[in-house]
Design a protein around this nucleic acid. Structure first.
Lengths: 161, 161
DNA sequence: GGCACGTTACTCGGATAACAACTGTCCGAGTCAAACCGG
DNA sequence: CCGGTTTGACTCGGACAGTTGTTATCCGAGTAACGTGCC
């Protein structure tokens, strides 16, 4: 049960985009170079964020990605879901239907006690992620390292893509 | 981020073992036949549970698996961890070390705000799983379907491996 | 000088390979039970 | 009849393939800016 590496990249990229002057797009190449990541693959993740409505993408010169809405309206769960997909980690295949008194027409994802238990944990996880926003993360970073926003803008400006 | 299928199998098998007369071992073949699962692969998962100290295994005739301790002392998290391993789903690779002011000697798994946020959610998930025991699950099933324990013992007895 | 147009370079986007992990299978080492043999 | 021994079958355990999902890469469609020429 490993989470996609792209989740970490996407979260960091979203936080970095928070600090850009609004209206200024950043290309996938620059976002990748920022952390020395593979450009094309990060682009793939950014596409997923764009499809999910978290980013907007612009083609051509001066194009790139920018946040589609205010950072306070983007939860960590939004980003995770955009990359990982909406389905939960635990897969109830309903093996009870093969057991004694098992029925094919029963949705064991809803009725199986074990499935319920796992779902409960999954909901707790999602709730925690939904309670955190990109804005809060950016704020916390700014408090601990006040020079960060400027440093990030500076790096993007001087990056040799 | 998909969880191993073996987690579902392992949980159901543990609950079924709860209902066996203590001291009576059940072979991997029977546990697998119960839900029409691939025997050898389930055996692999049961081995993991044995390594984790959740089950004890016995070789030879009349051998098989049995619970290593009381069901109330086996949490769902124990089973999940035995199959999936102890590491958390989100992998912080510490990409901040490649960014501006990044340091190689800093453990970003501890200091990165994003990593902390993901870890917080992971802990909530684990806490939820740790709060559920195999005994509680078995109890809930017994309350809803009182005939289950007897039915399970019966099926194991009559199973043509 | 201003505007329209063609060119050009740049960017995303999806289609395509390489790799790793999960899934599934097989056969051997060890073990326990039963059968057998001798006393 | 009883105990020790041998045999044999049974079970787990780890080593070995097949399949799916993740990681990485490449090239084309579209686009916006720029330069050019015309009015």
């Amino acid at each position: 049960m490993r989470m996609n590496e792209g989740v970490e990249w996407a979260l960091h990229s979203c936080v970095n985009l928070t600090w850009m002057d609004s209206g200024e797009a950043v290309t996938a190449a620059r976002l990748a170079a920022f952390y020395e990541l593979p450009t094309a693959y990060l682009n793939k993740q950014l596409q997923a964020l764009a499809r999910a409505g978290i980013l907007t993408s612009t083609s051509g010169p001066r194009g790139g990605f920018r946040l589609a809405r205010a950072p306070k309206d983007i939860s960590v769960l939004d980003v995770v879901t955009a990359i990982e997909g909406p389905e939960e980690a635990f897969r109830c295949e309903g093996i009870l239907s093969k057991g004694p008194n098992g029925r094919e027409d029963v949705d064991y994802r809803k009725h199986c006690v074990i499935s319920q238990s796992m779902r409960k944990a999954d909901l707790a996880w999602r709730k925690e992620l939904a309670g955190q926003t990109i804005a809060e993360i950016a704020e916390t970073v700014e408090k601990r390292f006040p020079g960060t926003p400027g440093g990030v803008r500076n790096r993007f400006a001087n990056l040799r893509t």
